[in-house]
Nucleic acid binder design. Sequence first.
RNA 1: GCGCUCUUAGCUCAGUUUGGUAGAGCAGCUGACUUUUAAUCAGUUGGUCGAUGGUUCGAGUCCAUCAGGGCGCACCA
Length: 519
Amino acid sequence: MFWVDKLIKQLDGQTLQIVNDSKTPSGRAHVGALRGVIIHDTIFRALKEYGFEAHYTFGVDDYDPLDELPYSKYEQFQEFLGKPLCEVPAPDNTTSDMADYYISEFFSVFKELGVQVTTYRLRDIYRSGQFDATIDRILTKADQVRDIYRTVSGSIRPPTWLPIQMICEKCGRIGTTEAYAYDGQEVSYHCRPDMVTWATGCGYKGKGSPFSGRSKLPWKLEWVAKWANQGITIEGAGKDHNSKGGSRDVAVACLKQLFGKPAPLNIPYEFFLVEGAKMSSSRGIGVAARDMADFLPPEVLRFLMLRSQPNRPINFSPSEDAIVKLFNEFDRCQAAISKPNANPEILRIRRFSQVSRDPNAADIEYTIPGMQLIQALVQLPHLDVVTEVQRRNPRPFTDLEFKHLHRRIAAVKYWLEHYAEDSERLELQQELPDVASNLSDLQKDFLQRLSVALKDAVWEGNALQNLIFATSKLVPIPQPAAFSAIYIVLFGRVQGPRAGPLFSYLDRDFLMTRFNLKE
RNA sequence: GCGCUCUUAGCUCAGUUUGGUAGAGCAGCUGACUUUUAAUCAGUUGGUCGAUGGUUCGAGUCCAUCAGGGCGCACCA
C-alpha cells in the first residue's frame, strides 16, 4: 500500500485536518526542502480524496534572525546579522526584503508543481498580535518551559531565562537579546555583544512590551504557538528535528503541558541528498529547488519526491544513467494508467505525481518517446526533434503530448548544459576522433566497405540499417564490433543511437568521407 | 555521548504495524520479429531475507545481542 494511504488510515475520525509546513527564507531553498512540501501536499490531496475537510498552510519564518550570509559575496550584509530576515534588504533590491526575495523563488516552484497552499508570514502573525496571548502564557509559565527543556532535552537554563527573543529597540537585532524578567506587561532584556558567535549585539539594556511584533518566540516555542493557535493536526518534519530530545520532542511536550493539546501527527522524513559533494562541485550543480524545477518536468520531480517512502533517504544523481532511469521509471508508471491489471500502488504514485490537483483530471494520459531517444536526437545538429519523433510515432501526437514532449526536450537541453559530463555527451565529431586510431583492421575494412556502399544507398532508416548488417557480413565482422566502429568514428564513444535511422538524419557525403579512413 | 534508520535476487526497492509455503521493476539469459546497438514482443534463471540466540506448531516479520552502512542531535532554527 502506498505510504500516504497507510498514513491516513492511522488518523482518528476527526473530519477537519490542517496540514502545515514552514520554511525559513535565509537563502535559496535547497531542492531537499521540496521533499517536505511534496509529502505534505500529497497528504493534503489524499485527505481531500478520502473526504476529509483539509487545509494546507505554509508559514514563512521571516522573523528569524539572519544568522549567516547566504553567499560570501554579500559581505555588505554583515551589519544586518542578527536582525529579522524581513528587515534585511534583498540582495538585488528587486523585492522589499531578503525573506520575500528567497521565499518568492521557492513559491514559484510550488506553483509549477501544483502545490496549492495558504501561505502566511510570521512577521504578520507577530505584528498583528495573533501570538500575544500565547506569548503571555508561555512567558508566565516559563518555569515549566525550563523544566521541559531540562527533562526532555537535558539542557539546563538559568532560572531567569525566558523563552523569548526581544527585538532590541536600539539596534533592531533579535538574535542577540537575552530576556531575564517578565512582569506580565513588559520584558527586561539585554542586547549582548557576546550572546552568539554570528552576530554582535549593541549592549543596550532595555525593557518593553513583547507584544505586537516586538519580540519573537524561539523556534521550539514558535512551533508550539503555531500548533496551538492554528489547530494544526498534521505536520511532518525532517530528521534534523526528530532526534530524541530534539526540537520536536520539546515542542510536543510544551504543547501538551502548557496548552493541553495533543501533538499533531508527525511524519518524520529522511533527507533528499544530491550525489556526493565532490561530484556536485565538479558538475557545477546548482541544487536549489528552483534549479531542479527548471530541469525536471514537474510531474517527474513530484514522482522523484514521493515514490520513496518518507523514512528512506533519496539519493539523486544527475548522471546520464540515473536520469535516463528516472524518466524510464516515470514512463513505466505513466504507462500503468492504461494497463488493466496494473499494480495499484504504482497507480497511486502516478496519481499523486500529476500536477493537476483534480484526481480525475484528463490531462494525465499521454505517451511520449523515452529519454534515450530524445537525448540522442537533441544532440544531433540541424535536426528538428519534434518533427523526427512525430515521423516515427504510429499516430499524430495530441496537444497534450506535444506539450510534454517539448518539456522533455527542454529537460535534455538543461541536462546537457548543466550536468552532463563530457563522456556522457553525444557529440557528432567535426573531425575524425583520435580514438579512431585504435580501430582494428577488420573494423577499418568494414567502414571502408560501408563508405562505398552508402554511395547508392536508399536514404531511409531501415534500409540503411539493413545495409549496415549486410556490409558487416561481407567483411565479415561481428556486429557489435561493426557498430562500435561506427560510433567511434562519429562520436568518439562505443555506443550511440540506432545507426540506420541516425544515418538518415546525416549527410551522405559527410558519412562517406568519415568512413573512408584511407583518405 | 544520546538517538533514529537501513541491511531481502546482479541493481533499485516492496513485504515487517495485525507471524502462516519469499515479491516487483530493471539488468541477465532464451526465443521471436527475414539478422544482435541504450528497440519491440514472449518466456525464464536467480535470494539459506546481515550474523547469532530466543519466543512459537510455524519467524523476512516479534524479542535480545552483535556486525556493517546512512543520518540526526548536543542549548541554531
